[in-house]
């Protein structure tokens, strides 16, 4: 079941001059299923924040449509099931951490009798319960981020949008946030994550989308995107004599990385077995065969690096 459905979404920001238009989203389509942690990647200005803002009714689309929980995004009642942590959020500085949670929970339609216990639970979860009576103007960036995350969970949302959630948080804190997100996923929540921290997205996301200048370049399961199906690594127990390498395998490229590690690029399993048989016939002891994996960062860089992005 798709929680988010985006169809041909286009957003054009009008600049000060007649020709100063900026296309932040360009015929963008996407769907996110229930229970996923979806990571949206893109360089600055790729349109990630614009997409989230359109989905939440903060920005109006120029063309196209989007639905959340099957309802059009213009129906603001749907937001009672959504939590949101914006990038660089600001809370009313005259409120304490606890009051911030009370206020936003009330706005999200949470019943008064559950607000108190939920506030205590989430303040404890994000480890700022000691500062619950402190005015947020005294909070550091990391504490604000933790409070923001607690705020996003106060209405027990089915879908949570997080825009750079670990921004300003130390590595230990990041780990804690990743753990919280994993717990939320286990509870069946759907998480839409915007981040430029690729390793982090790779660690926690089940599905990712890679954006460039308002377009979706790649979309799929992290495992599928980072696995190069046609490239295998053959590790051997004995060094491979380069003289053993076949001179003419049609369409099969073989590269020796080290005396005990060979990389082969094959069309299918049959070809792979053909190569393995060849080595074994020549007395090479095979220790391990695995598919070559790219990191998300390598994939991202190969798709996006050295290109210009539009304004977000």
């Amino acid at each position: 079941m798709n929680i988010i459905e985006v169809e041909n979404l286009t957003k054009i920001y009008k600049g000060p001059k007649a020709n100063g238009e900026i296309k932040a989203l360009d015929n963008f389509s996407l769907s996110v299923s229930k229970g996923e942690i979806f990571g949206l990647l893109g360089a600055n200005g790729a349109g990630k924040t614009t997409l989230i803002k359109i989905l939440l009714g903060i920005v109006h689309p120029t063309f196209g449509s989007a639905k959340i929980f099957g309802k059009d995004i213009t129906d603001f009642s749907v937001r009672s099931k959504i939590g949101f942590l914006p990038e660089s959020h600001k809370f009313p500085t005259y409120l304490t951490a606890e009051e911030v949670l009370y206020y936003f929970a009330e706005l999200s339609g949470v019943e008064k009798n559950v607000i108190k216990q939920r506030a205590a639970k989430y303040l404890s979860l994000v480890r700022i319960e000691k500062w619950k009576k402190t005015k947020v103007k005294q909070f550091s960036k990391g504490m604000m981020q933790r409070l923001g995350l607690a705020q996003a969970m106060m209405n027990d949302p089915e879908l949570i949008f997080l825009d750079e959630p670990t921004d300003g948080i130390d590595p230990l804190g990041r780990k804690e946030i990743r753990d919280i997100l994993s717990e939320l996923k286990e509870d069946g929540k759907t998480i839409f994550l915007n981040s430029h921290l690729l390793s982090e997205v790779e660690m926690i996301s089940t599905t990712v989308g890679i954006m460039k200048t308002g377009k979706l370049l790649q979309y799929g399961k992290v495992e599928d995107l980072t696995t190069d199906k046609e490239v295998y690594i053959i590790e051997t127990a004995t060094p491979v004599n380069t003289g053993l390498l076949p001179s003419s395998f049609d369409n099969i490229s073989i590269k020796v990385e080290s005396p005990v590690k060979i990389i082969v690029n094959v069309k299918d399993s049959l070809e792979l077995n053909f190569v393995i048989d060849h080595f074994r016939k020549n007395g090479v002891i095979i220790k391990n065969v695995s598919q070559k994996k790219e990191t998300l960062e390598e994939l991202f860089l190969s798709l996006v690096a050295n290109t210009e992005g539009g304004e977000e």
Partner: peptide
Amino acid sequence: EKGNIDLLLSKPIS
């Protein structure tokens, strides 16, 4: 202000 209005508009309030 950015960061404040985003949060408010993301709530079920017109």
